[in-house]
Design a protein around this nucleic acid. Structure first.
Lengths: 217, 217
DNA sequence: GCTGTCCAGATTGTCGACATTATTGACGAT
DNA sequence: ATCGTCAATAATGTCGACAATCTGGACAGC
């Protein structure tokens, strides 16, 4: 059990603490067996990181990521990951390519089984291999921070009919470009892929609004 | 004046506190007339923001941005600003265009006068007008954070002979694309511009290494 | 019934004191 | 002379207490 920062972060990202839920310092301190001082420091960090909002004299809440902001996060992610894909094309090792190849194989298996949450996890790991190959700590820092903010929307995109099949083909295209060490191709394939993800996310948000009537009548 | 966070931030960004300089909580607290508690909170925020490094039991230092990291920051900036330029192309108002036009005129005047630091300031404002037009809070947050980290290298790029003239032409191209509401053109013009900036930054770093011999012999 | 005021409880903000941990320099052994 | 040990010092980490502030509900006036 790490320090309050990591415990809280994990609790938020994993969804144990819900958006807009109030975070009372003394309650958290007792809950995780730490002093209020440490909890305060953790809340400040999480505020700066964007996972929590801190209002003076009014305490902390789990930050609610709006639909619009989720789309913005995905746009930034697209811009950065396209750049990283380009860099990865010239830097990736044969070991990295082997990993990606294996990843794609396993993703294909998940698609055949219709296991979309298993697919999503492999999906995330596929992208992380590329991040590592790109060797760009600055972009990595930003991306992992953004990822934790957008986590709430992570699995919604897999719900669209036929999405996983297309997603798999997009990943195959990315892999092919990286294997060929084709900078332009890798960037373009990644950009196309994330444009699709973005569109799917928009679709998920729209259909959510269509479905969930909050005042039935 | 402001709270310890803003005071410290300003002191770091403006260069009053130097890279690797040690930040002793009690000293700062007395210096700016605040309690140690508030200073601690400020240091935690600045650490998360990347302006300060915080090591457990070893205190805080002004974070030293390496040459490599400065280049990485500029790459990220290029990726994000290209995206923002594209968005701005369809969103910018006639008022925004008027501002940019005026900005370009004044930049031209500075070039004619050989006033490269005045040029740099207008340059920064030119870009900020585009950020505002793009209406993308998430990217804005990241960019302004990156900007404060890279501030130390801000003025070095203007030292390259003939750079300001070329830079001016690049800004004119960006303006023209925005005025025409040409998404692809704006993104491409911004991308080209920042690629040039990146190359110039690399040049500045190289020439610094050539010039500054730290052990004269 | 509605609105505004005021009080009680809860929560955050700040301070001072003390425990814990690194750093520095002296000192002695080899 | 060099290295390791150890104490003195400085700085950070943590806690408890109290002050400042916000929140929600009771209550009076209209």
């Amino acid at each position: 059990m790490g320090d309050p920062y990591h415990r809280l972060r994990e609790a938020i990202v994993s969804g144990q603490l819900h958006p807009n839920e109030r975070l009372v310092e003394s309650a958290i301190a007792e809950r995780i067996g730490a002093g209020r001082t440490a909890v305060r420091a953790a809340l400040v960090r999480l505020d700066q990181e964007g996972l929590v909002t801190l209002e003076r004299n009014r305490g902390a809440r789990v930050r609610h990521i709006s639909d619009r902001e989720a789309l913005e996060i995905e746009q930034v992610r697209a811009a950065l990951e396209s750049m990283l894909a380009r860099r990865a094309a010239t830097r990736i090792t044969s070991e990295g390519l082997r990993e990606l190849h294996e990843m794609v194989d396993r993703m294909r298996a998940r698609v055949d089984e219709g296991d979309s949450i298993g697919y999503s996890e492999l999906n995330a790991r596929f992208h992380q291999v590329i991040w590592a190959a790109a060797d760009h700590p600055t972009a990595n820092r930003l991306l992992s921070s953004l990822k934790s903010q957008g986590i709430r929307f992570q699995y919604q995109t897999a719900l669209r009919p036929g999405r996983t099949q297309r997603s798999l083909r997009e990943h195959e295209a990315i892999f092919a470009a990286l294997k060929a060490h084709d900078e332009d191709g890798a960037e373009a394939a990644m950009r196309d892929h994330l444009a699709e993800v973005l569109e799917t996310l928009q679709w998920a948000i729209d259909s959510q609004h269509r479905t969930a009537r909050w005042l039935p009548g």
